[in-house]
Amino acid sequence: MPVTSEKIMQRLLLAVAFSALSALLLIAVFIISQGLPFIFRYGFREFLFSSQWNPQAGKFGIFPMVVSTLWVTLGAMAIGAPLGVAGAVFLTEFVPRTVMRIIKPSIELLAGIPSVVYGFIGVMVLAPLIRDHLGGPGLSLLAGSIILGIMILPTIISISIDSIMAVPKSYREGSLALGATVWQTVRMVTLPAARSGIAASIILAMGRAVGETMAVIMVTGNSVKIPGSALEPVRTLTANIALEMGYATGMHRQALFATGVVLFVVIMILNFSASYVMRQRKARR
């Protein structure tokens, strides 16, 4: 009796584990089978590097979206990465552990806020602020970058904290014993030692920023245009898919799948490089 139930559970769990894997496989195969033929038929260069996106007229150039995605992501990194790493350093090196134990979970709560709520705050608070003080329509590249910059904070902070904490205590003690100040120790010993973990946190955060959709649709204005400044509206790759999928048929639908292929490749590259950087660290030890 216990043996059979054990076996049943084993099989069941195996099936569950494989179902997750097969879901990934299914999605990958589906997106690629739907999108790749279109890319070849339409022309790889024409698709990636043309600025004309007009599905009704059969024009499918995603270059403005690629550029916008890069800018929004870079903007989010410029805001989120320094804040996140600085926050992690502060929490690990400059405050007592008890304080960190309160603040860290609260920051991680940020990750639990649904993205539509971020978008809503962006539309209601951030966009009017930008419109009134900086000009432009408010819904802009800048608004998207700020919102995403905040959204990626928990990823950067918690992974960075883990990797800073993983630096052996003896490193710090050695440095302090040589007469270095806490800041000198952080700058010259702890951060370099935790470098790969911090880099991985930033790459993972980039993956999240590239993939985020709802908040971005709400705050960036979604114009298909290469932005001339941070105050202009932009449309990212994810927003392009989400906005138009409801109406897309035929070629248009395939073009959106092809957009998905491009996104998929970008995020795969980011994830692989994150795990590569992480492995590097383990290998060094």
């Binding site: 408010g138 649709i217 709400m218 114009s223 298909v224 245009k225 509206p233 449309r235 906005l243």
Partner: peptide
Amino acid sequence: GEALIQESNGTIRETVAN
């Protein structure tokens, strides 16, 4: 090209109202 794109009647209304 500069036009903002909103995905529903409701969000158009919010954008214009703001």
